[in-house]
């Protein structure tokens, strides 16, 4: 598993650049990850990311867009507005989580 230097510390990532260690993430790093993929973070973005982090901790898997809507209460339409074109992957990347594994 490669590591890379981000904000002066070494973090573990997979071949695509998704963080692999839950505890290596913090908000500063999240902001940096968002910058990497051109997402300008607002309070609304952070609320979604916080939900994903909390949900992952209790479920052990990354929430799909469906779950972010049904359980998190963030409508799919909003997710597409905040994280255009590929919301599931972009949210997971910024939240320092693996890509969601569910089909729906």
């Amino acid at each position: 598993m490669p590591t890379q230097d981000m904000l002066g510390r070494e973090v573990h990532v997979d071949d695509e650049g998704f963080l692999t260690e839950y505890d290596e993430w913090d908000e500063k790093l999240g902001a940096e990850l968002a910058k990497n993929i051109g997402v300008a973070m607002t309070d609304e973005h952070w609320k979604v990311i916080t939900f994903l982090r909390t949900d992952y901790k209790s479920q052990g898997t990354t929430a799909t867009t469906r779950r972010v809507d049904a359980v998190g209460g963030f409508p799919v339409k909003l997710q597409f507005q905040l994280f255009p074109a590929k919301p599931a992957k972009k949210m997971a990347y910024i939240a320092g989580l693996p890509k969601p594994a569910g089909c729906v």
């Binding site: 590591t3 890379q4 998704f18």
Partner: peptide, 10 residues
């Protein structure tokens, strides 16, 4: 550590 960050291609 890689100096060049790996960024997924979205």
């Amino acid at each position: 550590a890689n100096t060049q960050p790996i960024v997924p291609n979205f």
